[in-house]
Design a protein around this nucleic acid. Structure first.
Lengths: 88, 88
DNA sequence: CATGCTTACGGATCACGTAACCATG
DNA sequence: CATGGTTACGTGATCCGTAAGCATG
């Protein structure tokens, strides 16, 4: 599991659409599709249902989404923490 | 920034020693040294002071460490969340 | 000269983008 | 046939381990 995969997952969850998410992330659609697939493989369970109109979050995906957002927030905070002035 | 880098950082911080941390992580010492270096490069600031006896956390490193542990904990929680039973 | 971090280098793996493919409405 | 996800494939980048280098006490 990589941070890129986690960010990809959140973006697909928010757009409900791999194509649009790929635009937002500035990567090609197949690359994003692969990232989602490999994330699901690693977790051992699908996170999305593939419908004819896009990607719909499953329950496992909803649960994962909450933690995914926490992870990204913690990463952002970690980056900020390094550049804080020492006295803070 | 990758999760592997974050785990590497925490292990080096805990051991104060790249060599010992590499053993614990089951990777070669130069690989670990590179991960730490590239993490510092990306963050734009050193996290450790290189002493003749090993690695000592700097203030920026101490601040980063707290968030790094949060990130790893959130990742572990995310993995668990996927396999929880749906009713939970 | 023992300990410990870093740099050089070659090779394997990974991850991307383009192109082709398949399914649905 | 338009939309949207997946598979195939070749290539460029990444990352590892071994080996050599460098600093310190």
């Amino acid at each position: 599991m990589s941070l890129a995969q986690i960010e990809s997952f959140v973006t697909v969850a928010e757009t409900g659409n791999v194509s649009r998410a790929a635009e937002r992330l500035r990567i090609a659609q197949p690359a994003l599709s692969r990232q989602i697939r490999s994330l699901e493989d690693e977790l051992g369970a699908p996170l999305f249902a593939r419908t004819s109109r896009g990607m719909r979050l499953l329950e496992a995906g909803e649960r994962f989404l909450q933690h995914a957002r926490q992870i990204l927030a913690a990463v952002a905070a970690a980056k900020c923490a390094v550049s804080e002035r020492p006295s803070a």
